[in-house]
């Protein structure tokens, strides 16, 4: 089970106030699909607006990235720069 947590208030809005949840996903693609199924709009929002810190490393647009059975996935606002 990947542990998904977020610092985003949008995450709490879409999950009814949750700060984190467990998802049985083996890749980012599967994670987004399961998030969308559980909380409509969440998977789409994460794909469009968020980066993922997977076990501490930030990934952007990394649908194919594998997730381990104990992976921690932190949803964070997308980071760009100047």
């Amino acid at each position: 089970m990947a542990r998904v947590v977020s610092i985003s208030s949008k995450f709490r809005d879409l999950t009814g106030g949750l700060d984190g949840l467990d998802v049985d996903a083996r890749s980012v693609r599967e994670l987004l699909r399961l998030l969308e199924a559980r909380f409509p709009g969440l998977g789409e929002m994460v794909e469009a607006e968020m980066s993922l810190a997977i076990d501490g490393e930030i990934h952007q647009d990394a649908l194919m990235e594998p997730l381990g059975p104990a992976s921690e996935v932190v949803l964070i606002p997308r980071i760009s720069g100047g």
Partner: peptide, 10 residues
């Protein structure tokens, strides 16, 4: 160390 935004310092 864990940053407030979720990444681990590396």
């Amino acid at each position: 160390a864990k940053t407030v935004y979720g990444a681990t310092v590396r």
